[in-house]
Write a protein that binds this DNA or RNA. Structure first.
Lengths: 241, 241
DNA sequence: CGTCCTGTTGACAGTGATCAACTGGCGTGG
DNA sequence: CCACGCCAGTTGATCACTGTCAACAGGACG
C-alpha cells in the first residue's frame, strides 16, 4: 500500500520494518513520523495461552496489534455458560475505541505475539490521522459483519454444518476459489471445549462431528490440533455457504 | 445536546425542527448550515411492513434515518433458513458506510417513517463533519456489541430464557432500574414467525413460551401484538441478565 | 358466509445435551 | 526407565428439549 514505506527512513525501528501490522494492519495508515512516534511507546510481548488482555467490564487502558497467534473474545453468563463472540488473528487490532468499558473478555487462545500501546497514545494518533480513523471504522464494520454472519451459523445451522463452517473459517478466507479436491493443512487454534463455546455446542458433540468427518475421509488428523482437509469444496457444501 | 439548535435559524426546514434524528440521532452532530444542506436532498417517506430498503448483496445507494417503526436486518441461507441479525429503531441510521455491498437485507418490520438521503450527499457530509464520523463509529460499535451479546443469547440460552431476553429488549433499555413488580406495556414489532427468526427457534416454540408466561400470569396479552409485562424483574431473572 | 392468514395446541420424533466410562499422550517422580 | 497421575479428548447410553407435522381457532375481509 505505501511504497515509500519500504525503501524508507533509517529512523524506523527494526521491529517495525517487516511487521505485519505495518504491511496489512493499522500501522500501514501512518506516515513515517507518526509510526516512529507511536513505536516509541510500543512494547512487544509474547504471551501464553490463557493470558487475559482485557477483563470483562474493565476500563480499557491498553490496545494491541496481534502480530501472531489467536485472540478470543468471550462473553459469559452468571452461571458459567460461555460464548466466544469473536476471534482475532494477525494483523487485527484489539481493543475497541470510544467504549468506556469493554463488555467482553479478550484472552489469548494460543501463544501469541502482541504489540501494545497505551490508550492515550493511540487516542492521540486517532485524533491526528484520518486514514487511521477510517481504517478502524473499516475493521469495526468487518467485525460487525462477521458477528452477524456467525449469528446465522449459531442460530440456524446443524451441528455438522457448524463444524464445517468452523473449519472453513480457520482454513482461511473463503474468497479464494477452491476447485473440488483442494487439500489444505490446518492448525486448530482452539481446544475442543473452546470450539464448543464458539459454536454453541458441547465438547462431546464437537468431538463426534470431527471423528465423523475423519471416518468419512473428508479430513485427516495428524495430531489433536493439526489436520488436513481433503476437499475444501465438500466442506463448503456441508456448511451451506 | 445542541441548545442553539432549538432557538434557531428560520431556514431550518419545518420537518427537521422537532425531528428525533436531530435530537437523538446523527443529524444532531451537524451545524445549522450542514443540516440545511442535507435536508435539501432528504425525502421523508412512510413505508409499510415488508418494504425492502436494502437487498442482500446490492450496492447501497441510499441511507436513511429511522424516524418511527422498526427495521429488521436479516441474513438468509440458500435453503431459506433465515436469521434476523439486528433490529433498528428511531433514531438509528440504516446503511453501513464504506462497505461496497450490503451483506444483509434491511426490511421494514412494521409500518415505518424514514428520512432518506442519496449516498453521495451522506458521503460528503461524512467527509466534512468529524462529529458525524465519530457518531457513526459510536453506532457501529454499539451495534457490534449488541450483535455479540445476542450471539450469547442465541447459542447458550434455552427457549424460555430467549423469550425473556427478547421481551426485555423490546420493553426498553435495560439500564433503567426496575423494582420488583414494575409493570410495562409493550407492543411487539415482530410477528411470531419473525420472533422465531430472531431467536433461532420455531414459531410453535415461540407461541408455547408466550402462552406459558401468560398462564403464569407474568404477562397479559391485550391483543396478538400488545401485552403487559407484570413484573420486569422476574423476566430479568429468567433471562439471566 | 366462506376464505385466508396468523397464531395456538397436540402428538410424536430427532438432534444434541447429559452422564459416565474409557483411552492415549505427556510430564513427574521414584 | 518405568509407573503413575493428570488432562484432553473419545465413545457409549440415555434423556429431554425443541423441531416437525398436523389439526384447529379466531380475526379480517371480500
Amino acid at each position: 500500500m505505501n511504497i515509500q514505506a519500504n525503501i524508507s527512513n533509517p529512523d524506523i525501528p527494526e521491529r517495525c520494518r517487516y511487521c505485519v501490522a505495518r504491511r496489512h494492519g493499522i500501522c500501514g495508515t501512518l506516515d513515517d513520523d507518526q509510526l516512529i512516534a507511536l513505536s516509541r511507546h510500543a512494547t512487544q510481548r509474547k504471551v501464553g495461552p490463557g493470558t487475559t488482555l482485557v477483563g470483562d467490564g474493565e476500563a480499557i487502558a491498553i490496545f494491541s496489534n496481534v502480530l501472531a497467534g489467536t485472540i478470543k473474545l468471550t462473553k459469559t453468563l452468571a452461571d458459567g455458560r460461555q460464548q466466544i463472540v469473536g476471534l482475532q488473528f494477525a494483523p487485527d487490532f484489539v481493543g475497541s475505541l470510544f467504549r468506556v468499558t469493554s463488555s467482553c473478555t479478550a484472552e489469548a487462545a494460543t501463544k501469541a505475539m502482541l504489540c501494545t500501546f497505551p490508550k492515550a497514545v493511540v487516542e492521540r494518533m486517532i485524533a491526528e490521522s484520518p486514514r487511521l480513523r477510517s481504517r478502524l471504522m473499516e475493521q469495526a464494520l468487518k467485525e460487525l459483519d462477521e458477528a452477524r454472519s456467525w449469528m446465522l451459523t449459531l442460530a440456524q445451522k446443524t451441528a455438522s454444518e457448524k463444524i464445517a463452517s468452523f473449519l472453513l473459517l480457520i482454513a482461511g478466507r473463503p474468497g479464494a476459489a477452491h476447485g473440488p479436491g483442494t487439500r489444505v493443512a490446518v492448525e486448530l487454534p482452539l481446544s475442543r471445549g473452546e470450539i464448543g463455546d464458539f459454536l454453541g455446542m458441547t465438547i462431546e458433540t464437537v468431538s463426534r462431528q470431527l471423528t465423523r468427518l475423519s471416518k468419512n475421509g473428508m479430513i485427516r488428523f495428524q495430531s489433536r490440533r493439526r489436520l488436513v482437509i481433503n476437499d475444501i469444496s465438500y466442506l463448503e457444501r456441508c456448511a451451506r455457504l
